[in-house]
Write a protein that binds this DNA or RNA. Structure first.
Lengths: 191, 191, 191, 191
DNA sequence: AATGAATGAGCATTCATTCAT
DNA sequence: CATGAATGAATGCTCATTCAT
């Protein structure tokens, strides 16, 4: 959908790469970026060498993890936008993004990356997400469901912030989480 | 209510300790907890040994930084609460806390700490803050300025979240930042 | 009965491990346990990382050195006991153990370890040695070559003590050393 | 008797020096030479500065501890030699020296020092001890109580070795310790 | 291609020694 | 003289990255 495919890549190599990404996502998001590469490799059932063949740098691995998440979000956002009326789509997508990042500190940084700086490889997917989010926002605003004066940066900032707020709350009690959504969603609507 | 003084502490020792905390706060908040202790020591103009005499562990230093921040916030919150009417005090304090942590990722974690777990030495100041915030919230709710159904955990979560949102925005342009405040503050008010 | 082989271990890795043990034995016994790990690594022609890969702790390295010595002694003791008549075997083995530890202060501690406390990994080899020594002693006593009232602990204590005595003497002059053996061996015989 | 008195030394300074030596002896012999100087100072109730004023180096402190022990032994040896018949004196003194060093690994090194190497300040007391021991040995040999062929070095070596043997044994059970003495004393006697 | 052993810079921490108070 | 804060070299250990097998 966006990833680069330099060469066909043998079947088992592809499987290794995928597994590595899977595991890295799991481990990094649950235990932070400080986890040694060796541990990731072991958890994925390969040697360190293999890990470094696929991702020449630890940072590259982190980046790949983030990219994958961004791509997933972009895809889901696109689907929602296509299937739902603008106002609904906006709020549904807001929820979705926030829920995606539940309990995953590291993920806030992925979104952060979408807003600013970024190593080359993040450019593409973060551009795509930004584009989709911009569309969602515009749609909701035209439908009169969201304040006119809000720009894309504030939208993204609110996504990151709401995700952060959720991390602060118990994961298993939905009531307080809904109250946070109430506050933010009500605040988003025009006065 | 603020610093503990086990022994009077010689003048120069006190100066070093203070300088070390100053520098550590600055460096840790701007560049993360990964910065080598040696660098902190150098920036403070002392040897590593001195750093470790005052803070027996890197973690202890981090803790001290966080404690100081929490204490500062607690003090400012107390002042605001005493000088202002409940509703105003609530929102003023919300701003204050969020502004304090502007651009300082590490600081969000300090607030996080106020909400959860934490090493013994953080207990006292985070308890105090929680107490003050609880009072602010109750006052504002009695004054009818804030939704009744919000609890202290949600309040703290929103503080952390709003701080996070601000980090996402350019520091020097106040307009978008105000828009974030608008959204959150409006959302906080009763329907 | 001797080395444990968790996994086959690559040829070069095995070589490194062996070399490391060799060097560590040499260095620790001649200059004490205070020698920096880095120096051991350098002397073995490997990086520190390699040392720590094979022995996760400096203490583990020391332990391995001691274990190897204990195993060697156990093996030699076993051979002697098998090939010689009880009385002869006892005194031959006494000599052997003492000679083994000539000039190696650290080694006295290995024997000490055989008598007391000690980290798990030393248990097995020190148990084996104790067993063999007990057998030697019993054999010699039955043959009427050693005082009946002596127990295993005293036997071990005398081994350690005689080794210590030898350290006090010039290494290259055999006469005084033989006189020490005379005193101890004569003292061991029944009145 | 041997100590140097460069200057009169004020009363409290002398007290500090004595206390420091006392504590250092206690701590070093029970916990080894690895104990930090700061801890010694604290246990003696003085600052590190004071310790280093009296003993310009940690090594100097260790040396002083050893010297004091040697002097004590020399004095006791002298008394015994004066009050008792040669043969008795020899064995009594042997016991005394060995018992002195019971359980104090570090002390074996003091004796070792008496036999070999040694930093200047140890020369005097170790010479004195060697002299006294030589006299004891000669006396016992003339009385026919000890083998003629034994020299002073072997005597000293046996002292060190027997001390070492005792360390290996339980401190509170006298029976095995006596058996060690039996072996060594019987071995020492002429055939 | 995969493996995992080797590497070594980097880091937190300790401790003998100095020196301002 | 006494004190204890300051110093910084030294040490054990980790971990991203490379490379022989």
């Amino acid at each position: 959908m966006s990833g680069a495919a330099e060469r066909p890549l043998r079947a088992d190599a592809a499987r290794n790469r995928a597994r590595l990404l899977e595991v890295a996502t799991e481990v990094f998001t649950s235990r932070g970026a400080g986890v040694p590469t060796e541990e990731i490799a072991r958890a994925a059932g390969v040697g360190v060498g293999t890990l470094f063949r696929h991702f020449p740098t630890k940072e590259a691995l982190l980046e790949a993890v983030v990219v994958r998440r961004l791509e997933t979000i972009a895809a889901q956002t696109a689907r929602l936008a296509a299937e739902t009326a603008p106002a609904e789509a906006f709020f549904a997508c807001f929820r979705l993004v926030v829920e995606q990042s539940a309990g995953k500190t590291e993920f806030a940084q992925a979104l952060a990356a979408a807003g600013v700086d970024v190593h080359a490889s993040l450019q593409a997917p973060s551009m795509e997400i930004q584009g989709r989010l911009a569309q969602l926002l515009a749609g909701a605003q035209q439908a009169g469901a969201v304040r006119q004066e809000l720009g894309l940066p504030e939208f993204i900032a609110l996504l990151a912030g709401t995700s952060r707020a959720m991390e602060q709350l118990e994961e298993d009690d939905p009531a307080p989480r809904e109250r946070i959504f109430s506050v933010v969603f009500d605040g988003l609507r025009p006065r």
